[in-house]
Structures are given as structure tokens and as C-alpha cells.
């Protein structure tokens, strides 16, 4: 298992940093360009949610991103210590949003572009969103197990 942990301020301009960081770290895996584009959307959604909903756009908070790469899969966990989600099942429904200006598609994209999505949240404590994506074309193993 090869890991990277990044903590950054909850600022809008850091969402693109998070996408680039993940793309760079997973370059050791055999993802195609179009798979990388999908990963970037999933990361963007998770990090944007942490900033916008978790922290209510307060730029002084910290978003933590944990990236774990194994031989044939990738795990990305986005962690905020913000307000938390009241009703996770409802939040995961496509087109559900607590903000009328938003489409409510963030979780739907995370679900379509990743193989597994786990959301753990506690009101007033924060939210952890864990996403797993398998490497579809196993070729050169990125990280060898010893």
C-alpha cells in the first residue's frame, strides 16, 4: 500500500489542486486518460462538498485527503470536520440538494465514476467520504507486494 495524505485550506481554488494531486499520485497505476477524467470529477465533487456544505464556504478550515494505492485499486478518502450530514440516505439520492442553486448530482457522479462509495457522517462532527476504484486493465502492477 502506497499512501499520500494532504491537508489544505477549504478554499475554492484548492479544488483544482486536489484533482491534480490525485491524478499525479495515481499516475503509477494503469488508468486510461478517460478514467483519470472520471477520477477528477469524483475528487472535485467530494472536496467541493467538504468546502461548500461541510464548512459553509469558510476558507479557514482544513480539508484532509487520503489517497491509498494498492496493486489493483485506488482509495480516496475526503475528510472534513464540519457540520455533518443529517440524513445520509437522502443526501445520496440523485437530484437531492439542500441548496436550490445546486443540482444535487455530486454523490451521483461519485457513485457512477467510482466502484464503491462509503459515507460516514455525524452531525456537528464532520464527514468522511471514502471512494474506491479498481484498476480495470491489470497490466504492470504499480505497487508490488513483498
Amino acid at each position: 500500500m502506497n499512501k499520500a495524505v494532504i491537508e489544505f485550506s477549504s478554499r475554492a481554488e484548492n479544488v483544482s489542486f486536489a484533482r491534480v494531486a490525485v491524478a499525479a499520485f495515481v499516475s503509477q497505476l494503469d488508468f486510461t486518460l478517460s478514467e483519470l477524467e472520471e477520477l477528477k470529477v469524483a475528487v472535485s465533487e467530494a472536496v467541493t462538498n467538504a468546502i461548500v456544505h461541510g464548512y459553509g464556504n469558510d476558507p479557514e478550515q482544513i480539508v484532509r485527503l487520503e489517497i491509498r494505492v494498492a496493486e489493483n485499486y485506488l482509495e480516496i478518502e475526503t475528510i472534513d470536520t464540519g457540520r455533518g450530514i443529517d440524513d445520509i440516505a437522502k443526501a445520496l439520492e440523485p437530484a437531492y440538494s439542500t441548496d436550490p442553486e445546486r443540482m444535487g448530482l455530486g454523490f451521483a457522479f461519485m457513485q457512477s465514476f467510482m466502484d464503491k462509495l462509503d459515507v460516514i457522517s455525524e452531525q456537528g462532527r464532520g464527514t468522511r467520504v471514502k471512494m474506491v476504484r479498481k484498476v480495470r486493465a491489470p497490466g504492470r502492477a504499480a505497487v508490488r507486494e513483498h
Binding site: 484533482r19 477524467e37 477528477k40 470529477v41 472535485s44 465533487e45 467541493t48 461548500v52 442553486e101 445546486r102 443540482m103 448530482l105 455530486g106 457522479f109
Partner: peptide
């Protein structure tokens, strides 16, 4: 080169 749901929200709005 890239759009996510925040961008889609602006278009839909």
C-alpha cells in the same frame, strides 16, 4: 477541459 456539478448548476440555473 473539465466541468463538475458546480458548473452544471450554473448552466441549469
Amino acid at each position: 477541459d473539465f466541468i463538475d456539478s458546480s458548473g452544471l448548476g450554473v448552466i441549469l440555473g
